[in-house]
Design a protein around this nucleic acid. Structure first.
Lengths: 259, 259
DNA sequence: AGTCATCACTCGTAAGGACAAGTGACGTCA
DNA sequence: TGACGTCACTTGTCCTTACGAGTGATGACT
């Protein structure tokens, strides 16, 4: 049994030993770690201690544990899917999202009416309890199996100003952008990117492994007057997909971040 | 004692009950949850079961536990800091990062020499084991206390082509962009955004709470010929900060995502 | 009045035992 | 030979007990 003594708690010492072995390549990716019983013997500790150490490594995303089989080193491979966040416009005035054609809808879109929350109100710069059309889509990339949640939120106020919108508030974002442009708006977009840990239901629908954060990108379309018109959100597991942006240098600008 | 019975494991039922109470607002943000002993009595379960339930909620980022005090509902407030990812160029040819002046260096930059890994090699489109200058900075936003890790990676090959670069490979990115531009390159940038759970040391240096993912953005500067010249990375906790991009519609483009 | 020890409360760590549940291989039986 | 039951191995769940450690208030002592 290999002794250990350095830092704080016993289980942290065990976790540190295993972590080191993984990061140094001693345990190859996808390989099977020693079983709990073996680790108990190896480090001379009880089962709760071993399980505590394993729980720590699991929370770090270093290992995957499968009931009845054992613990496996997670293969922290490169992302399988790169989601390009640009917007193009073809000669005939329609909008095209690069890579936007990879997604298939796994379910029928669900439409609903809702009101601004603190978060969506901030993005849309709407006060208290503005009414919104909502539309949720569960998307799947058949190539990689990656799942994503897509949501559009359209203020009543905006929908009413553009007749066709109010009738069918759950159309594809590119269609909405086209209608807004036809209505006289020259659109610009602002995106904000955040990450958080999923709640259990989100974990289920996105089919996420342990310790997998959710990347959450919100795209707000702004009209000619700079007022937010429309919100488009996308969420997906950060284990397999990444976001990509292209940037070119502005001349001279001294823009300031929104509060 | 309020009975529960629905789904799988006991501790999951307890966790679900508490989670529901939190999400429904029954337990307000920042408020103190019942102690472990109280929860044991309330649900008629043992301490490990209660602790297991609490561990689950902790991993979801719903609560914060403070030794000797109790469990608190995490206030999932809006991000305190918005990191604008644009690049501007003033009339005299210098580059300016919007909001780039908020950061202060918490430590002296550390410079080193290294080689491409699988990840950095992919971004820089370099094969096997290319040599790189590295420079790490620990940044702090004095306003919010947000900490971030900044890293620049410069291939030897590029540094040698631009004399001033090789002498001082740890200068500010804006300076490097200026030198590369003076060298005749018309730069464009590509950014990729990922998220992952921090390892213990990363957690420490960024001072992250439990269940807080790290947002990881990599900016690659491409030269006139489209070849990657320089890599700039930024990592920070997703609990307090978010990324922001501005997008305008391209004409006609049919760009394709990189493999 | 002020200082400090004590105490009661909190969560953290560690051990032990017992049984349930998933997995796969082995061996028996038809 | 094939199908199926059994068994050994794995992790998952749950309980009991015990003590360590951080926190804040109470109260005694100076």
């Amino acid at each position: 049994m290999s002794e250990i003594q350095r830092p704080g708690a016993l289980y942290q010492q065990v976790a540190a030993a295993i972590r080191e072995a993984i990061l140094s390549g001693e345990f190859a990716p996808d390989s099977l770690l020693p079983s709990e019983a073996q680790l108990m013997a190896r480090y001379g500790v009880s089962r709760p201690t071993v399980r505590n150490a394993i729980a720590a490594l699991r929370a770090e995303g270093l290992i995957d544990v499968r009931h009845g089989k054992g613990s496996f080193v997670r293969s922290s491979g490169q992302p399988v899917l790169t989601i390009e966040r640009g917007i193009s416009r073809t000669a005939d005035g329609t909008f095209v999202m690069p890579g936007g054609d990879i997604w298939q809808e796994a379910e029928e879109p669900s439409t609903y009416r809702t009101r601004t929350t603190k978060a969506t109100g901030r993005l849309l710069q709407l006060g208290g309890e503005e009414a919104l059309f909502g539309c949720d889509r569960l998307l799947v990339d058949p190539g990689t199996g990656t799942r994503a949640l897509h949501r559009t939120l359209l203020p009543f106020e905006v929908a009413e100003a553009v007749p066709l919108l109010a009738e069918e508030p759950c159309m594809h974002p590119a269609e909405i952008y086209r209608l807004l442009t036809q209505d006289g708006h020259k659109l610009t977009w602002a995106e904000t990117v955040r990450a958080h840990m999923p709640l259990p239901d989100e974990r289920t629908t996105l089919q996420l492994p342990d310790a997998t954060p959710v990347l959450h990108v919100a795209r707000v379309a702004h009209g000619t007057d700079g007022r937010p018109l429309f919100l488009e959100e996308l969420r997906f597991g950060a284990d397999r997909a990444e976001l990509a942006y292209r940037i070119t240098a502005d001349k001279q600008a001294t823009r300031r971040a929104r509060a």
